[in-house]
Computed example of a mutant assay.
Amino acid sequence: MSTTPRPSPTLLKVCGATTTHDIEAAAAAGADCVGLWHGVPGGPSELDQDGLAALAAAARSTGLLPVLVTFLADPHHLTDLVTRTGVGWVQLHAYQPPAAVRALREALPADTGIVKVLHVQPDGHCVERPLIGAYGRAGTDLFLLDTATGDGRIGSTGAALDPDRITPLLPRLTRPFLLAGGLTPTARPAYHDIVTHPGFRGIDVDTAARSQHTGAFAVPQIAALARAWRTTAPTPDHPQLELSR
């Protein structure tokens, strides 16, 4: 099982696929990774285990890296999901503590990446800020900066992150990072200082990857994101995060 996405200067992850059409559109438009939701109670893109396995297989067949996006924390259950479904990375949304990351790192195969989401509120407060170093030491491979709305919603909210609220966090990051939070093709110039940071590895998008008419992933929307956001970024030195096979 490969855990390295197709080569590109900047990773493009589209999140919340629910059908093979979504997978095919993401692959055709040049995405690298696809997020598959499981263990996100009430989530609009939630998949059962069989659906997760089927779409992970479909993603691998197109060259996409399937990423489990979850609120779950139990390392044994997550490891069983990885084994049964063949996802390449586990993306931990919600507020799993560093101890859960450490237990997961110890339980997972060495070639399975762990992505830990850091939730940034509109005022710039990040509840995980004091724990960033501990997450890195526990075995996090990649951070993802995403929005936590004022009413407590997290994950695919479509709410934009103010770049001025993100910049103070960057010196604290001990691992490379992805950027999320209401990103669009036209938003890239506002994030110039972030995308040129040596730790930047790419973007994670849900809402802007979808057709406004059908709600499904759409090739024109994803291709526009790829054109706008792909920039020259340093190659990661962690073997799980190599951008080339």
Rank of each mutant, 00 (worst) to 15 (best):
T3Q: 09
T3H: 13
G16V: 00
A17V: 04
T20F: 01
T20C: 04
T20M: 03
D22I: 06
I23Y: 05
A25Y: 05
A25T: 10
A28G: 03
A29P: 05
C33V: 14
L36D: 08
V40Y: 00
V40L: 12
G42T: 11
P44T: 08
Q49F: 05
D50C: 05
D50R: 13
D50E: 15
G51F: 10
L55G: 01
A59D: 09
A59N: 09
T62D: 02
T62W: 10
L64N: 09
P66W: 05
F71I: 01
L72Y: 04
L72A: 15
H76S: 08
D80I: 00
L81N: 09
T85V: 11
V87C: 11
W89N: 00
V90P: 04
L92N: 03
Y95V: 09
A99P: 00
A100K: 05
A100S: 14
A100N: 05
E106V: 02
A107D: 03
A107C: 08
A107R: 11
P109A: 12
G113R: 03
V115P: 02
V115D: 04
K116M: 10
L118W: 05
Q121E: 15
D123L: 11
H125I: 13
E128M: 06
L131A: 13
I132N: 07
G136D: 06
R137Q: 15
R137I: 10
A138H: 08
A138E: 07
A138T: 08
A138Y: 07
G139P: 07
G139Q: 06
T140S: 09
D141Y: 06
L144I: 10
L145F: 04
L145W: 06
L145P: 05
T149Y: 02
D151R: 14
G152A: 08
R153V: 09
G155H: 02
R165A: 14
I166A: 01
L169S: 08
L170E: 04
R175I: 08
L178Y: 03
L178P: 01
L183H: 11
T184M: 13
T186H: 14
P189Q: 12
Y191A: 09
T196L: 05
T196E: 13
H197W: 13
F200D: 03
T207W: 05
T207Q: 08
T207L: 02
H213S: 14
H213E: 15
H213P: 00
G215V: 10
G215Q: 02
V219W: 00
Q221M: 06
A223H: 13
L225F: 12
R230V: 13
T232Y: 00
T232W: 02
Q240C: 08
E242L: 15
E242C: 11
L243K: 15
R245P: 11
